[in-house]
Amino acid sequence: MPTSIQELESTKAGRKGLIHRLKNFRSSTPYRIIRRYPILPVGIIIMLILMAAFANVISPKDPLDSDLAHVKSPPAWLEGGTTEYFFGADQIGRDLMSRIFHGARISLMVAGIVLGAGGSIGIVLGIIAGYSGGFRDELIMRMVDMAFAIPFILVALVAAVVFGASLGLVLILLSMFSWPPFARQTRGLTLQLKEMDYVAAARVAGASPLRIAVRHIAPGLSNIVIVLATLQVGGLILTESVLSFLGIGIPAPKPAWGSMVADGREFISTAWWISVMPGLAIFLVVFAFNFLGDWLRDHFDPRLRQL
């Protein structure tokens, strides 16, 4: 009988047993629950929302305060790190953890506002296109095609030169490029919904097109809109971080995650945590939203599979 894990692994039977245990784990109850429900992503998203909501309460320091005594102080678990600066400090001694908390606020706010603006424009245009058809449909759908065909990053670069980088510009640019998917999907579903008997009944009863759109078609769109919005959050946070990283997004000293990664670029050989920590935050959040979006899509609207 092998007595230790090392001994167990060293025998051939033991190695087989390890693979067997791995397979066992994959059919065990906890694993099946994790696979069936998006517990991990929902956990990350709840944490993100809490971080953003209570950023000024839970942050150990002011995100803009620099302390020259702690320049490039490493994270707490590394040699030389202090728990005072748990994720370490950046090149001018600002606490990374506090900056990440406040960065969460910026990321969520950008995603929320852009989704609100882009989503409502897209839904309204999509319903108009799908319900009225004809010339309006043609015009709106060509606009959608156009918006898909124009490389976003290039327009953002030109706009940054003309107007100068600012939070408002980021919001406007992202909104301009986030409505087309909503319009396209909404239109497709509206085309189906307007053939429904209950819509015909409403029309016979004398309901105006506006009333039909708001009371009879819009409620049917909720699934598709929720799935699409969740799938878009990750992309929006990613795009915002790219703009901020390049220096054409949210201007310093606001702690946007993208610009925090850019700050640490020069110090990658001496203080990797300045770049890696905020980048990890972006990665986890985008991953969580993508994963949750996929899950919602598969469960509520498998028709969207090709998205």
Binding site: S241, V261, G279, L280, V286
Partner: peptide
Amino acid sequence: QAAPPFWLAIV
């Protein structure tokens, strides 16, 4: 799909 391109490069 989830990693920011600049961060992946830096890592």
